[in-house]
């Protein structure tokens, strides 16, 4: 009887912890397994481009149709992996067309299993928000903004990992 009770308890505990774990995994895996992606207007995106905390933010503007953007994504993923514990946050802002979110962007994200945060910017008033993000941005992508509360720089160019890491390091205190 006693052994039966012990087995019952062990099974129960195991079941319970299992359930707890799967719940946790679900939340953690959301970015790669979700079928929906958050879409922002420029006014909604703006606060994410001017945070005033102790983190350094790397914001990359890209699209699945942009070959040089897709080529440099692994560099941003690697940066996210190497620096997320060092107060750095990478955000990938997709400029994919609204009618390609389901058919192209989501399958792409699933295939590439990106760990960085990805959002979509869908705002028709490009003339306003391109100038607002950076006065010198002509609108070509790839383009990247790196900022923290003391420094801000915009790059209308492609990056390889080393160049990107070197740039980021100029933002980080030694």
């Amino acid at each position: 009887m006693k052994t039966k009770f012990i087995i019952f308890t062990v099974v129960l505990v195991a079941l319970f912890s299992c359930e707890k774990k799967s719940k946790k995994d679900k939340i953690k895996n959301q970015p790669t397994t979700k079928t929906e992606i958050a879409t922002y207007t420029y006014n909604e995106l703006k606060p994410l481009l001017e945070k005033n905390d102790n983190k350094t933010y790397v914001i990359n503007f890209w699209a699945t149709w942009c070959a040089p953007c897709v080529k440099e994504l692994p560099a941003f993923e690697k940066l996210n992996e190497n620096f997320s514990s060092k107060n750095v946050e990478v955000l990938l802002v997709s400029l994919d067309f609204p009618n390609h979110i389901e058919s192209k962007l989501i399958p792409f994200l699933k295939k590439k299993k990106l760990n960085s945060n990805v959002i979509v910017l869908n705002d028709i008033d490009e003339d306003t928000w391109i100038k607002a993000i950076d006065a010198n941005w002509t609108g070509a992508i790839p383009a990247t903004l790196i900022y923290n509360k003391t420094k801000r720089k915009f790059y209308e160019q492609s990056f390889d990992y080393q160049t990107l890491e070197n740039e980021l390091k100029t933002f980080l205190k030694p």
């Binding site: 490009e126 003339d127 002509t138 609108g139 070509a140 992508i141 209308e156």
Partner: peptide, 10 residues
């Protein structure tokens, strides 16, 4: 002078 998104020149 106006701006729009575009593909970088290759």
């Amino acid at each position: 002078e106006t701006r729009a998104i575009g593909c970088s020149i290759k």
